[in-house]
C-alpha cells in the first residue's frame, strides 16, 4: 500500500463524508417511511376485530313497564347483556337514600342513579369480572345489603346497585335510557 498524498486524502474523506450523509439520509428516510407504512398496514388487521356494523346496529331495546309489580324485577337483553329493571319498594328506596356516602367504595347518591326513584335500571354485569349477580328472582340471595350478590367472587350490591362489599371496584353501571311515556322504557 502506498500513502496517498494528504490533500487528496482529505478531499477523498470529505467526499466520502458527503456521500455518507446522503446515504444516511436516504437510508433513514426510507426506513421511516417503510416502518410507518408497515405500522399503518397493521391497523386494518387490528380494527377488523372491533365490533362490526351489524353488531353496532343492535343499539336499542324498548320494554313495557306495565306488568311489573312493586318489588318485582325483570331482566331484559340489550346488546347481548342483561339489563336489570327493578321496581323498588318504598323501603328499598328509603334504605338506598339513607346510606351515607362515606359507607360507599364508589360514592354516588341514589338520586343520581335512579331518574324515577321507583325504577332502578342497571346493566346486570358485576363490575369485577363480568358475572351476572343474583337477586333478580324472589328466591335468590341478595347479599348483605338487600340488592344483588355476585356468586363468582362474592361482591355485595345494595338496593341502589352500589358496591358495598367484595372485590368489584365500581357500582353496577347504568345503561343510557329514557321513559318514552308513563309505561314505556327505551334502553340504548
Amino acid at each position: 500500500m502506498t500513502e496517498p498524498d494528504s490533500a487528496a486524502a482529505a478531499a477523498l474523506d470529505a467526499g466520502d463524508e458527503a456521500g455518507d450523509e446522503r446515504r444516511d439520509f436516504l437510508l433513514i428516510a426510507t426506513s421511516v417511511i417503510g416502518a410507518t407504512g408497515t405500522a399503518l398496514a397493521l391497523w386494518p388487521f387490528i380494527d377488523t376485530m372491533n365490533p362490526s356494523a351489524d353488531v353496532l346496529a343492535l343499539a336499542s331495546t324498548e320494554i313495557d313497564l306495565l306488568p311489573i309489580e312493586e318489588g318485582q324485577s325483570i331482566t331484559i337483553v340489550w346488546r347481548g347483556k342483561p339489563v336489570f329493571v327493578r321496581r323498588r319498594t318504598a323501603a328499598e328506596i328509603e334504605e338506598a337514600r339513607a346510606t351515607s356516602l362515606d359507607a360507599l367504595p364508589d360514592p354516588e347518591t341514589d338520586e343520581a342513579r335512579a331518574e324515577k326513584p321507583e325504577w332502578l335500571i342497571l346493566v346486570g354485569i358485576c363490575t369485577h369480572l363480568g358475572c351476572i349477580p343474583l337477586g333478580q328472582k324472589s328466591g335468590d340471595p341478595r347479599g348483605e345489603f338487600g340488592g344483588w350478590f355476585c356468586p363468582c367472587h362474592g361482591s355485595h350490591y345494595d338496593t341502589s346497585g352500589r358496591i358495598r362489599k367484595g372485590p368489584a371496584p365500581e357500582n353496577l353501571a347504568r345503561p343510557p335510557y329514557a321513559f318514552l311515556d308513563e309505561t314505556t322504557l327505551k334502553i340504548g
Partner: peptide, 16 residues
C-alpha cells in the same frame, strides 16, 4: 370490546 368483537362474548368471539 375489541377482544369480543361486540359488547359481550358472542359469535364473533367464538369465531376468533
Amino acid at each position: 370490546n375489541w377482544l369480543w368483537g361486540g359488547f359481550s362474548v358472542a359469535n364473533p368471539t367464538l369465531n376468533r
